[in-house]
Amino acid sequence: MHKYQIHAIRALQDNYIWVICHKNQAVIIDPGSADEVIEFFNKNNQYQPIAILITHHHHDHTGGVAQLIASYPECKLYAHQQHGLDGANSVNDGDVLGLLGLDFVVWQTAGHTDSHLSYVVSIDGSYRIFCGDTLFSAGCGRIFTGTTEQLFASISRFAVMPEDTLFYAAHEYTLANLKFASMMATDNYQEFIQQYTKQISQKILDGGISLPTSLANERKINVFVQACDEQLAKRLADKHRLMDNTPLVVFAWLREQKNQA
């Protein structure tokens, strides 16, 4: 039986390029650089890349596309029409891509950018979400061409998924985000955040990575996920003495605090 394998390729300063492999095929997500991906396939030459999926237009997610398409001409490119990539097959919210024997469901998860996409797929009985720069472990993306309302809606959409849903973000920002979380979180989550920070610090020191992360985990360490819940938003508002405790307002306040951190 051929199992699905998900590899994280390190690139640029702190990017992860995700590669999903099955049998003799592979799907690449957000190749900000090509050389590391080509090196991966040279070492693992049993796999042939059949598709590239793009979450958003920023160069650290698309910079390797042209070289990869030139190197693997049979590989198809999927992106939003606003991503500005030549030769891309246009996809948007609700589209389903049949790849590797799986259904990759396209979600619009705007906020970081106004045309940001995520790719949702069920593997081995649990959902895996390749979320680009929308959700990070213990954090969320900075707003560029999107809006706070869009980002809040996107994180809220993630927050109601099953607890074992795994998120594959595109950057190693976890320790910095945990530092922010420790300043913002309510008292009942502080001990877990401190323990988790030690765990991830050791993991990274040993050469590992902090991803993927489960929704169950994010509900404990990610104040942006917590702010999408009405009761938890109220607790965060009480802690920080906010006059308005509605989830969107609390979320927006947290995002502004993170911008200044």
Rank of each mutant, 00 (worst) to 15 (best):
H2K: 12
I9G: 02
L12P: 04
D14I: 04
I20H: 06
I20C: 13
C21S: 08
C21P: 07
N24H: 11
Q25P: 09
Q25L: 14
A26Q: 04
A26M: 03
I29L: 08
D30A: 10
D35T: 13
E36M: 10
V37K: 09
I38G: 00
K43Q: 15
N45A: 13
N45R: 14
H56F: 09
H57G: 14
H58V: 11
G63I: 13
I69P: 01
Y72H: 15
Y72W: 15
P73T: 11
C75K: 05
K76W: 07
A79H: 05
H80L: 04
H80Y: 07
H83T: 03
G87N: 06
G94I: 03
L97R: 06
D103N: 15
V106K: 01
V106M: 01
W107K: 08
H112D: 00
T113A: 01
L117H: 03
S118F: 03
V121K: 05
Y127K: 10
R128S: 13
C131H: 04
A138S: 11
T145Q: 04
Q150S: 11
S156N: 12
F158R: 04
V160F: 14
D164C: 09
Y168R: 11
H171M: 04
M184Q: 11
N188D: 15
E191G: 05
E191P: 03
F192A: 11
Q194C: 07
Q195E: 13
Y196P: 01
T197Y: 14
K198Q: 13
I200E: 00
G207R: 10
G208L: 07
S214N: 05
R219K: 14
V223K: 01
D229T: 15
Q231W: 09
L232A: 12
A233G: 12
D238Q: 14
R241V: 11
V250P: 13
